[in-house]
Simulated assay, not measured.
Amino acid sequence: MPTGIRDVGSYLPGPPVPATFFFTEEELASPIASNPLFKAPATRHHVNGERAAEMIAAAARPMFERLGTEPAGSVDLLITNVMLPDHPITGSGAETADLLGCRPRWIIDLHNGGCASFGYMLKLADTMIASGAARTALLCNVQNGAGQFFAQPKVRKSPYAAVAGDGCGVAYLSAGGGSELLGASVIHAPEYARDLGLTGTRKYWAPGTEELMVSFPQDKLGDIIARGNRLVPEAVTDVCKQIGVATEDIDVLITNQPNKMFLANWRQALGVPEERHIDSFEEFGNLYTAGVPVTFDRALRAGAVSDGDLVVFAGFAHAGDMASAAAVRWCG
């Protein structure tokens, strides 16, 4: 039986946070702040004490209510991808299952994948469902680094900080039901994994007061931008070839939301009109791992996706060590 997406859900913590939380009006008008890579969205959301599992439960419960089912007994496979796991050893999967009252056969805390994780998780879940190892799956993407990491007093003055937002997106899959998953593509480029790291002189687990920050080597920034421009169209083109359509035939394109520059470059490379490429950046900022499912859920609720639409999800992760794309024929 083909794997299908039954429904999706999302959760955004707290009230919207304005760009002035990070910079003054004068700083926001500076040349660096106007750079397309760093231009701050109007608003974003920040976690305020929520655990990742609590964010997942807040996104998933309304979805299960719409489906008329309870999580207990309805989730064979639970996959989480959390930017900052509340417990670095056990991850968030078991806590999520406990909060939702389910006992999956499989709990996978998928730490890699980043902004490409949604397509990666779709392919993994499809593989397991096709093998008969599971019949249903709950995919959970949590970005919780903006309010905990990028909001640090010194870090929040970095040009990267104001771009990030927090949120959670979930998707429920089953065998033989929902909107059929037509194909998926995952690209690995492990040679680029070390091009993203933490600044600072101490290990992240070591005691100290130094604020750590995610950063890219400045001398590789041009290469990283080029990878990002290339990888998403490459993954989307691959999945379109799998299912025998041209990229121009995509009805709705849902990508991660790093900045306006990447969004414009991707749709231009793929021949997808702007109105068919959903843009949530100005409202939610860069939601990293949660960007694709949250953007899709909001597009559904806004009526931007119709029955019969060919929907393609895509993203690239970190400094370009992974990219993914997946296609579904949406049937509401």
Rank of each mutant, 00 (worst) to 15 (best):
M1Y: 06
P2T: 12
T3P: 05
T3E: 02
G4L: 01
Y11W: 13
P15V: 09
F22S: 10
P31I: 07
S34D: 15
N35H: 14
K39F: 12
R44A: 11
H46N: 04
H46T: 01
A52V: 09
A53Y: 06
A57Q: 02
P62E: 14
L67R: 08
E70I: 14
P71D: 04
L77V: 00
I79R: 02
I79M: 13
N81M: 03
V82W: 04
M83P: 04
M83N: 11
D86C: 06
D86Y: 02
H87K: 13
P88V: 10
I89M: 06
T90L: 10
S92I: 07
G93H: 01
T96E: 01
L100F: 01
C102A: 07
R105Q: 00
I107N: 05
I107D: 03
I108Y: 04
D109R: 01
G114K: 03
G114R: 00
C115M: 11
C115H: 09
L122I: 10
L124A: 04
L124F: 01
A125T: 01
D126Y: 00
A130K: 02
A130E: 11
A130I: 01
S131Q: 00
R135T: 00
R135Q: 04
T136R: 02
L139I: 02
Q148R: 12
P153H: 14
K154V: 15
K154L: 15
S158V: 15
Y160P: 11
A161L: 10
G167H: 06
G167D: 14
S174W: 03
A175V: 09
G176D: 02
G177W: 05
L181G: 06
L182I: 10
G183R: 02
A189P: 04
E191Y: 04
L196C: 10
T199Q: 10
Y204R: 13
P207L: 05
E211I: 09
V214G: 03
Q218V: 14
D219K: 03
G222P: 05
D223E: 15
D223C: 13
N229C: 12
L231V: 05
E234N: 11
D238S: 15
V239D: 13
V239W: 11
C240T: 11
I243F: 06
V245Y: 07
V245A: 11
A246C: 07
D249Y: 00
I250G: 07
L253P: 03
I254A: 02
T255M: 08
Q257E: 10
P258N: 08
N259D: 08
R267K: 03
Q268W: 04
A269W: 01
A269G: 07
V272F: 01
E274F: 05
E275D: 14
H277W: 02
D279Q: 10
S280I: 11
F281H: 03
F284K: 06
N286A: 06
Y288W: 09
T289R: 04
A290I: 00
P293H: 07
F296L: 08
F296I: 08
D297I: 06
D297G: 09
A299Q: 07
A302N: 09
V305R: 01
G308R: 10
D309Q: 08
V311T: 01
F313W: 07
A314W: 09
G315F: 07
F316A: 15
F316S: 14
A317G: 12
A317T: 03
G320P: 12
G320S: 09
M322W: 08
M322T: 13
A323P: 06
S324T: 09
A325C: 14
A327G: 15
C331H: 14
